[in-house]
């Protein structure tokens, strides 16, 4: 038996406090990229009872993703947008999901991100991270941007941090561990960076802006 929305909100109110939960329930977050960062961030935010998630990715689930991303072997070949929607709905059907199975470009960003209060950068390529960051901060001055950079390899978990670069730009990660240096990606460290991003988002929504 799936609990009712009222039962679910009651639990969230107990855990987060009614004031904060009201803000979380009213918030819309766009997650750009549904890989190791984005899929884990989406799970955290769905459990936290965010009102609406905009999920954006053009790619399909591959066996190589399963080592760190929130998909299952039976979902290989499916679009990440639809596989993740299925998984999130099973966790909590009361977070509204809006999916876009497209590649994010400078031409479609305005439309894709319009409704979002907070934009979450969760791409894998450095150039795409920089493009989204620059575009949002230059053209969407009312939005917050939370980005991730540096979570590859086996280095210490304690090197992964959240920094506030500008008033509306938060950056999570160790800043240096590049997957292209052949140091691999480890589920725990990617999830750690994803948790930093998700937590920064939740704190912004709760009105706790300082790090």
């Amino acid at each position: 038996m799936i609990p009712t929305k009222e039962e679910w909100i009651k639990v969230l109110n107990e855990k987060h406090g009614e004031d904060v939960q009201k803000k979380l329930s009213a918030a819309t977050v766009a997650i750009c990229g549904l890989g190791g960062l984005g899929s884990n961030i989406a799970v955290s935010l769905t459990r936290a009872g965010i009102g609406k998630l905009i999920l954006i990715d053009f790619d399909r689930v591959d066996i190589s993703n399963l080592q760190r991303q929130q998909y299952r072997m039976d979902q290989i070949g499916e679009y990440k947008t639809s596989a993740l929607s299925e998984n999130l709905t099973l966790i909590n059907p009361y977070t509204e999901l809006c999916v876009h199975t497209v590649r994010v470009t400078e031409d479609n960003m305005e439309e894709l991100l319009r409704e979002a209060d907070i934009v979450c950068e969760a791409f894998d390529k450095a150039e795409a991270k920089a493009m989204l960051t620059n575009y949002v901060l230059e053209n969407m001055p009312d939005k917050y941007l939370v980005a991730g950079s540096g979570m590859a390899g086996f280095d210490s978990a304690n090197l992964v941090k959240t920094r506030r670069v500008t008033k509306r730009f938060y950056l999570c990660g160790d800043g240096v561990s590049d997957v292209n240096d052949n140091i691999g990606l480890v589920s725990s460290r990617v999830m750690l960076c994803a948790a930093h991003e998700a937590h920064a988002i939740i704190r912004i929504i709760a009105g706790k802006y300082e790090i």
């Binding site: 894998d124 450095a126 991270k129 920089a130």
Partner: peptide
Amino acid sequence: EVVSFVGGG
């Protein structure tokens, strides 16, 4: 501050 992104996600 120059933020230089690295790959991985």
